[in-house]
């Protein structure tokens, strides 16, 4: 199987502090991978490095996406190449209507790929269908992007964007946080619709519960910036039962007080 995403020996630092190290991950087309880890393990750093956010220095290693060197691409080029990050904290953009933005985004990506703009009618048709699927009411489409949305509404809106933009690789960063069980189910259904042999997903999460609905092919345990263990979906259950403690690196010997 061809690798859609291939991360090799990656080291990332933020403000001079190493957050990810010796990080390896290969995601094949059609696969769903989960990266699980406790707070501060480097989960969001992984998401942002993939999407190209400023302030995350790659000090070593490579990321290839569909055969291209991802790290040389601007964030918008990554989007055009087929990468989508559903963010943990979607940004509020007052004054920019949700659906106007979504159409601009779709057309920007189409333009970058040399495709014509989507017609207003086609766009509306698709938008209505997908919005209904993820439970985004019509009035939310007219409101300013994420402005004053509840936590749940923001997450649904992220998944709506995901469904509209149809990326090759969807990275979901803590999509389950702030969702009640019904919303979680709706959102997961939306995500599952996108599953296909050409597409891959990277589900980044602290808890196992999202993985009840988006069932992964592979689970990776990320602790302290490194993947400590990889396995099948049963690994998630194991983690749920036993926690991350078993994966914590052994604390360094306390330094002997010199003074």
């Amino acid at each position: 199987m061809t690798a859609l995403l291939e991360i090799r020996d990656l080291a990332v630092s933020v403000d001079g502090k190493t957050i990810l190290d010796e990080f390896e991950l290969v995601v094949g087309a059609g696969e769903v991978h989960a990266v699980m880890g406790p707070n501060g393990s480097g989960k969001s750093t992984l998401a942002y490095v993939l999407a190209g956010r400023e302030g995350y220095q790659v000090t070593r290693g490579t990321i290839r996406f569909l055969g291209r060197d991802l790290l040389t691409l601007e964030p918008e080029e990554r989007a055009a190449a087929g990468l989508f990050l559903a963010m943990q904290y979607p940004v509020e953009i007052p004054g920019v209507a949700n659906m106007y933005f979504l159409r601009q985004a779709m057309n920007a990506i189409r333009k970058a790929r040399g495709e014509p703009d989507i017609s207003a009618a086609d766009f509306m048709k698709r938008l209505r269908a997908q919005a209904e699927l993820v439970g985004v009411p019509p009035e939310l489409l007219k409101r300013d992007l994420n402005a004053g949305f509840s936590g749940g509404e923001k997450k649904r809106n992220e998944i709506l964007q995901l469904l509209m933009l149809e990326p090759r690789l969807a990275v979901l960063d803590e999509t389950d946080s702030g969702l009640d069980i019904d919303a979680l189910r709706t959102v997961a259904e939306g995500v599952n619709r996108l599953r296909s042999p050409e597409r891959a997903m990277l589900v980044i999460t602290h808890y196992q519960r999202l993985l009840d609905y988006i069932v992964p092919d592979r689970v990776h345990v990320l602790v302290d910036g490194r993947i400590r263990r990889s396995g099948g979906k049963e690994l998630a259950l194991e983690l749920e039962a036993e926690g991350y403690a078993a994966f914590q690196p052994k604390p360094a010997e306390p330094a002997t007080a010199a003074a």
């Binding site: 190209g52 989007a79 963010m87 990506i109």
Partner: peptide
Amino acid sequence: FYLRSRGLPAALARSLL
């Protein structure tokens, strides 16, 4: 960054903001 991550080129994202 949010707008660019959705595919909007930097100049367009800036104008939109």
